[in-house]
Amino acid sequence: MISIRELHKSFGPLQVLTGVSLAIESGKITAILGPNGSGKTTLIKSILGLVKPDRGVIQIGEQVLNGDCRYREDIGYMPQIGHYPENLSLNDVMTMLQDLRGGKHPTDTQLLEKFRLGKEMDKALGTLSGGTRQKVSAVLAMLFNPKILILDEPTSGLDPVASSIFKDALIEERAAGKTIILTSHIMSEVEELADAVVFLLDGKIRFHGSPTEILQNTSESNLERGIARMMQEAVHP
């Protein structure tokens, strides 16, 4: 379980997270929703240690994040836009990451094969198209078979085929007991995948529960309308 208590973060005068407390259950897919600029990426990056929170505690299992980097061995991260060293190929990056972990981690290349990335393995990452780079991000996130997957808008650049392959992979991972956190603006996808939904607005959590609860609370017929209703009600109460 990942538990977050009273997380605060501001960038200069801009307050992005204002007291987020959240418990993310293991073995489930949790979707973090919210309008642009609501702090989704900052929340995700705080869990990863890429952003240093001003205040608050993040605990992953028994481990309270305190600057020790070893907890990241169990996390796979897929960024919104993957920035990779331009001159290196996917092969180089995979070898490098493996080497950095001391070679003790077995790798999982199923997704690589499903995406048919074999012929792109030795091309410089700088020459790959946006969608292919997104596939690379997905492969790298799952490469070390991590217990926790953190995905920032994972399907936004993928074509329908790749997107379905990826969603199937996520469902398989959940069946294997993985904890998955993702952000998305595609509500049908959230409806399809998520066991729990966290709704973030202006740096605060406004709702945390199952997708069906949203439908019941807002008496709307689908999640997209339910979320839209929640957003409107939060902005103009």
Partner: peptide
């Protein structure tokens, strides 16, 4: 090498 740095920071690297 900002990209390289960001990639490595998501890994168990201090």
């Amino acid at each position: 090498s900002r990209e390289f740095t960001e990639l490595l920071l998501t890994q168990p690297v201090n």
